[in-house]
């Protein structure tokens, strides 16, 4: 895929001091509620994510994956422990972050381009540069011809592509995706995996992908974090260093299968999956 103007055009990011994007968690826990109703969502988690890394998080439902993401994103505060992003403790919602959720959350009354430009309007970025950036991203995600279409005219997969473009518009150094493809059919999901992996490498964005699909987790990531059932903690931490760009046929290789099996066995051992 070619992205003609990415290298020349200034990105639409709020340029001064882009902090590094190392993410460090130190014995982070989260408890919801208090007293008898308290739910421990996370038991102490310590982990460091390197800049530009694509990290997947897999774990059984309710183990605290979304909670972990919200804590790092600064949308909630941890009950104990510290989170540092780019060396600084997280004190509020991260500015330098694009988020994609399971629901695409596109605005029905804006066309595709208008949706992608939303963060630029909110952050007050230069319109011309933002438009160039949007055009580049839409091309990268294969939806450039639908810039003038409205969300209702698009399929689920295309809508999610637009949501990814919107998240990446301000050129964040971090991108978090919380089960972005779980509402899509298997074939579209495979396409999206290939695409996400491409875009992630092209944008050098530190990526945190939360998913229930072990295949997806391994295919997209440089590193897979495996979480136990609630209260969630790290069961395993697996480096995945297949070269990029990756093709779907990678999933049929023995090396890939070995990693998938290793993760599945963790869940069988903890009783979250039946062997």
């Amino acid at each position: 895929m070619t992205e003609p103007d990415r290298d020349h055009s200034p990105t639409a990011s709020p340029a001064p001091s882009r902090p590094g994007t190392t993410i460090e968690l130190e014995r982070v826990t989260k408890v919801y509620g208090a007293g008898a109703l308290a739910v421990q969502a996370l038991s102490p988690i310590s982990v460091t994510l390197a800049p530009g890394q694509a990290v997947s998080v897999v774990g059984p439902s309710g183990c605290g994956k979304s909670t972990l993401m919200r804590l790092i994103a600064g949308l909630e505060a941890p009950s104990s422990g510290t989170i540092r992003v780019g060396g600084r403790p997280v004190a509020g919602p991260l500015e330098d972050l694009g988020i994609v959720f399971q629901r695409d959350l596109l605005l029905d009354w804006r066309d595709v381009l208008g949706n992608v430009l939303l963060p630029a309007e909110i952050k007050g970025l230069a319109p011309a540069a933002a438009r160039r950036r949007a055009a580049g991203l839409l091309a990268e995600l294969g939806v450039e011809r639908f810039a003038g279409h409205y969300p209702w005219q698009l399929s689920g997969g295309m809508r999610q592509r637009v949501a990814i473009a919107r998240a990446l518009l301000p050129s964040p150094t971090l991108m978090f995706l919380d089960e972005p493809f779980s509402a899509l059919d298997a074939m579209t999901r495979d396409q999206m995996n290939v695409l996400l992996q491409q875009v992630q490498s092209a944008e050098h964005v530190t990526t945190l992908l939360i998913t229930h699909s072990i295949l997806e987790a391994v295919f997209v990531a440089d590193r897979v974090l495996v979480m136990s059932g609630r209260p969630g903690t790290l069961l395993d931490d697996i480096a995945v260093d297949f070269p990029r760009p990756r093709r779907l046929s990678l999933r049929e290789t023995p090396e890939f299968s070995a990693i998938v099996r290793r993760i599945r066995e963790q869940f069988v051992r903890t009783g979250d999956l039946v062997g």
Partner: peptide, 8 residues
């Protein structure tokens, strides 16, 4: 094709 936009 996959991912065709819905034509009104």
């Amino acid at each position: 094709r996959l991912d065709e936009p819905r034509a009104p």
